[in-house]
Amino acid sequence: MISCSKQYQHFLSNPIAKPPCRMTNAKMYGFFAQIEEVKVQRFIDNTLNVAAPPHTRFEGVGEYGLITFTDIEKIASLTAPYDQHGWMQETDIIIWLPVAKVVGQGGDESITHLYWYPAFICVNNIYALINGRETWGYNKYMCDYTMPLTPSHELNFSISMDCFKYFAPDSKLQQHELFTIVSGESDGHSLLSMLENFGEDIADLFAQKHLTIDTALLKQLLSGFVNPQMDQILFKQFPDGKGDEAVYQAVLYSPSEIKKVHSFKLLKPDFDLTLNQLDSFPLADMFGFKIGKQPLYLPFYIEMDFDQLEANHL
């Protein structure tokens, strides 16, 4: 449900700032991982499809999701008076699902757009968490993490959160490691000449599963991280005081506009994801990642500036 429209109150001490916001020197590492289509679709059905517009549904695309670690040097609102309040550093660890928008009824259905769905997000500061959840509807949580400053040394990543390892009456909230990504010594090298072909490289990975999606539409989705826009789809909701009803529930979209690419690298060494079972964040049940070690594909690094635009109803 969508509640009646009322003016949002930016009262004193409320940390909410208005979009859009500028992200400067965002250093992103990305890795494609195999997922399970049935589990991903169940997650989409329990989120996006609950609030989908009439005659519209969303479907997962293919058998690969994307894991990114992004260190953003500087974030600031571009809207007055919040553009005068200051800036912050933010780190995002995100699991992205490629999602198709299907419009129509019965046998008259067509895929009209492809989106990236940031289905799982962890961040490192409270301003990022509050603004992301309240304004855009990002499913954000706080975390501790490790990631390299540059792609020229050993590339090891980890993420840990305060959570429940097991659900049980005597289980205490503690910090637990969710997953790691580990490689050998990196000799990754700049491949600027291949930047325009990056979407095609990933499209080839997806095409191995014989997707029945127009190739041009698939390339539009998969090149969005580097040129010129990445379309995000979001599930935003807030519960009532009992946790039974949604006082607000909607599907939103928010483009990321790439302003400048400073550098781009395809990373050479093999990478492995090692996932631990945490009942609070059961990624195996949510997306079909495997408990334990599994390979990752097409690792890349990109440094860029981009704007995150406001979120609008689909």
Rank of each mutant, 00 (worst) to 15 (best):
T212F: 04
K259W: 01
G288Q: 13
T146R: 13
S171H: 05
F300W: 08
L12Y: 08
Q232T: 07
Y301W: 12
A216W: 03
K242G: 12
L191I: 07
D92G: 05
L309Y: 01
L173G: 01
E200V: 11
W136C: 08
V123H: 01
L217V: 04
M230D: 05
A203L: 07
H176G: 00
F164T: 00
K260H: 14
A26P: 02
D285K: 15
M230K: 13
Q229I: 08
Q308D: 03
K219W: 01
F300D: 04
P148L: 11
W116V: 08
K293H: 05
G106T: 14
L12V: 14
W87Q: 12
Y115T: 08
L273S: 05
P81Y: 09
K209V: 09
C143P: 00
T112E: 15
L149T: 04
L129C: 09
L129E: 09
P282V: 11
L234N: 02
G224T: 08
F225M: 10
C143Y: 00
R133D: 07
Q208E: 15
A246K: 13
D201G: 04
L155M: 15
D272Q: 13
G104V: 13
A168F: 06
F31A: 03
L97H: 04
I16G: 00
T112K: 14
C4W: 02
K6H: 10
T212P: 00
E36F: 01
K268H: 12
T47P: 02
K165I: 07
S256I: 10
H85S: 12
T112D: 07
S183W: 05
P282H: 08
L195S: 04
D187V: 00
L234Y: 02
P169A: 11
D92A: 13
F271T: 04
F11S: 09
F225A: 14
N124Y: 04
K140E: 00
H113D: 13
L48R: 01
A207M: 14
L114Q: 10
K219T: 11
I111L: 15
L275T: 02
I75W: 03
E196L: 06
E37S: 10
A207V: 05
P19W: 01
G86Q: 12
G62S: 05
A168E: 06
I67Y: 03
G65H: 02
Q84Y: 10
F11N: 05
D240L: 12
M1D: 03
A216L: 15
C21W: 05
S110G: 09
I126Y: 03
P295R: 15
M28Y: 03
V226L: 14
L78Q: 13
I67V: 15
P239D: 13
I67W: 04
P269W: 08
P295F: 10
F58W: 05
S183T: 13
M142N: 06
K236P: 00
Q34W: 02
K268Q: 15
S280L: 12
S3Y: 06
Q232I: 06
L221N: 07
A76N: 08
G60M: 02
T180V: 12
T47N: 10
R57I: 04
T70N: 00
M304F: 02
K101T: 09
D71T: 10
S158A: 15
F167D: 07
I94D: 02
S183C: 10
D204S: 09
Q294L: 06
S193K: 14
E154K: 15
M28A: 09
I159L: 15
F164Y: 14
E134I: 09
Y82N: 11
D270L: 13
N131C: 11
L217F: 01
K236E: 00
S223C: 14
V123Y: 01
